[in-house]
Amino acid sequence: MTPPPDSRLRTGLRRFTRAETWVHRSVNWLMGICVLTGACLYFPPLAELVGRRRTVVTLHEYSGIAVPVPVLLGLASRAVRRDLGRLGRFFPHDWRWLRVALRRRRREPSLAGKFNAGQKLYAAFAAGALLIMAGTGILMWFPRLSPLMWRTGSTFVHDWLALAFAAAIAGHVWFATQDPEARRGLRTGYVSRWWAREEHPLWRTEPPPEPPQEGP
């Protein structure tokens, strides 16, 4: 999609607050370190090229443990909590968006709220994968905490899930390269109104996340 000449102006809809962009960038950096160090540990040619295996292992371990920290800190922001609630809810128009995306037969109007169904599925997969990889990683990090059978299973699950997650990240980045306005929203916090109308027309009408129930 080619943006209009005025799309680069910082005069549009506020899509993300500073807290949200900080959380996204922090998680990106930490995950980038995890992927790079994991590749160095998994592929012998890279391991020989980089060397310093103990340093690479340490970076991999601590960056992996630190991935949830920006998200937990971001929960102090109402905007972060609100968008996490949006990512965690599927609506009827999300299922229709998926059907249209999978058919690819003809161009139909986009049916997406602030986040489309693909972004919601990626967020759900990423959250689950990170939890599993953190758990299996801890079992490998502290071998005395578990029997050999557990550690062997953890290594298998960790390695294959890491490969699947790396593929998902590559797809996520590829889709981002196809949408300059989405990247601008993550970089500056603002998107053009024309882009919001075209790609996320239900943004303003989508039901807001339900507030937490208060006790009596």
Rank of each mutant, 00 (worst) to 15 (best):
E198M: 06
I132Y: 07
V69E: 02
V57H: 13
R25K: 12
L13W: 10
V191W: 01
A129D: 06
V50D: 01
E198I: 08
K114Q: 04
G215P: 14
E20A: 00
D94A: 00
G74A: 04
G74C: 01
H158G: 01
R10Y: 14
D179W: 05
H24S: 07
L163M: 06
W160Y: 03
P207K: 07
L75F: 12
L13S: 12
G189K: 00
A162D: 00
M1H: 10
D94L: 00
Q119E: 03
Q213L: 15
P92S: 11
I169E: 05
L148W: 11
R99N: 10
G128D: 08
P180N: 02
R10F: 12
A117I: 02
G137M: 02
P68N: 07
L36T: 08
H24T: 10
V67G: 00
M31D: 06
A39L: 15
E199M: 15
V80Y: 01
P68D: 01
V100F: 10
V100S: 13
D6I: 06
I65V: 14
F125D: 00
A39T: 09
R78I: 14
A19E: 15
S63T: 03
I33L: 14
R144V: 13
P201F: 02
R204H: 14
L87C: 06
R18F: 13
G74D: 00
T188V: 09
P216Y: 08
R82E: 06
F91G: 09
N116K: 02
E199C: 05
T136R: 00
L75S: 04
W150K: 04
E206L: 03
R103I: 08
L73F: 13
A170C: 06
G215R: 15
E206K: 05
T21L: 14
R14A: 13
L111F: 06
G128P: 03
P208Y: 12
K114L: 04
L145A: 13
W174S: 06
W195Y: 08
W160S: 11
P207E: 01
L41W: 02
T136Q: 00
G88C: 10
Y190H: 13
F175Y: 08
L121D: 02
V23C: 08
L161T: 04
E61I: 10
E210Q: 13
R78G: 11
A168T: 06
I169S: 04
F90H: 07
L139H: 05
W203Q: 09
Q213T: 11
A123S: 12
R183M: 12
E181S: 08
P212Y: 07
C40T: 14
R25T: 12
R78H: 11
E181K: 05
L186M: 15
F165T: 03
I132A: 13
N28H: 11
V27I: 15
W194P: 05
V69R: 06
A124D: 08
Y62I: 13
L73W: 12
A66I: 05
G12C: 01
T188P: 05
I138W: 12
E48C: 11
T177Y: 10
I33F: 10
P5I: 06
P45R: 00
W150Q: 08
R106G: 14
H60T: 02
P211Y: 01
R8I: 09
G171N: 02
L145D: 07
R81I: 06
E61R: 14
I169Y: 02
A176E: 07
Y42E: 07
Y122S: 09
A117M: 01
L73N: 03
V23M: 08
L145K: 07
L30G: 04
